[in-house]
Design a binder for these strands. Structure first.
Lengths: 201, 201
DNA sequence: GCGAGCAGAATGACACGTCATTCCGTGAGC
DNA sequence: GCTCACGGAATGACGTGTCATTCTGCTCGC
């Protein structure tokens, strides 16, 4: 192993340890000694690889954000040509996202809870990321409106942001129940019905 | 003015100052000196009325929670007998809640952003409060299902929590735009359409 | 192969800054 | 004069970050 590789590995180990501790305790209740203990290393080692506490938290959160963004790739908004295709797309996206929450709770906790918690600037950045996600969803709505399979009278931007809220609520739920896979299925069923057909009987 | 009244007034003034500062800066970035400055008082005065920083934040947040809960009173879940009545109820609730967010941004910020931020125990309490709100909404869904005007196949608990997510997303939005009243109207229109009739055309 | 020297990684004691909380002198009201 | 509320300086706890020291692995010369 060459020196750059060994340093990268060490850096990743520290970042993973920090991610676990911050996800578990929250950023503000985490201190450097906690991270060092989780790593099984000395306190000052940390500063060889990261500038300070803020730096590592930002990097942990940004990595979690990238991980979430990956889960949303491969589903281009303009390809669905019918309600069934769009519904299948939403089903895949929902499963992928909720499965990520279940499989990688540290990533989920960092994204959904800690990303806004570090300071005000990071909260704004998190909200901007949610706005991007909402705009991404709005692009699907507009595609469906253009092709005629989604209703024209709703505001795509509002629906995009509202569905963000549903995702956040679902993810928070899935992080807290004893059988997250069953909870995911309950959510996907009911939320898709709500989303496409509404509550009116 | 009697001594208890004067002390209560002073206490309320401190609590209001703290609420403003915490809502503006966030709990963790707020210090006692900031609150004292906002109040135009000495630093140590604070401790004559509140135990410590945590105590005042908890009281500010709990007061905001009570304020939100008041906005939801007077809409009993079992009274709607038709879709139109329920829709009117939801419209009133949505307006009342979003109008509160617009009129009292300090209350809204404390509830939606700071309630979970203080520490882990308070985050759990916030989630429990959201669960209660979700259960309250689920009671409306069950009433509609029982009476036949809402579809039977959705899970009321899931829908209750999902609509929580929509409320949170809407509130966050309304706290950030330049014309919140216009944004509220956009939201109420589209979200009610989504909620009752879905997106399918 | 062994030992010495070197470079860089690791460590943890310590310095420092911050801020929550306490304390005490002062002034106002009774 | 006495009591109590107040203001702000003082205090001490705590966490972050620094740096002197030690450790370890590698290379080179004998």
């Amino acid at each position: 192993m060459t020196a750059p590789d060994a340093a990268d590995l060490k850096r990743d180990q520290i970042l993973a340890a920090a991610s676990r501790v911050i996800a578990e305790r929250g950023y503000h209740a985490t201190n450097i000694a906690d991270i060092a203990r989780e790593l099984g290393a000395g306190h000052g080692t940390f500063y060889r690889y990261f500038k300070n506490k803020h730096d590592i938290a930002v990097q942990a959160v940004d990595r979690a954000m990238r991980r979430i963004a990956e889960a949303l790739a491969d589903e281009p908004p303009e390809v669905a040509t019918s309600l069934d295709e769009y519904r299948a797309q939403v089903t895949r996206i929902a499963h992928r996202l909720f499965d990520l929450v279940i499989a990688e709770p540290v990533v989920a906790r960092l994204f959904f809870f800690e990303a806004a918690a570090i300071n005000r600037e990071r909260a704004e950045r998190f909200h901007a990321a949610l706005d991007d996600l909402g705009s991404f969803t709005a692009a699907y709505i507009r595609n469906g409106q253009r092709r005629g399979f989604l209703r024209a009278e709703v505001d795509p931007e509002v629906i995009g942001l509202a569905l963000n809220g549903v995702i956040l609520a679902g993810a928070a739920r899935m992080l807290r129940v004893s059988d997250p896979a069953a909870e995911r299925d309950r959510w996907v069923d009911s939320v898709l019905t709500l989303m496409f057909h509404g509550l009116a009987s």
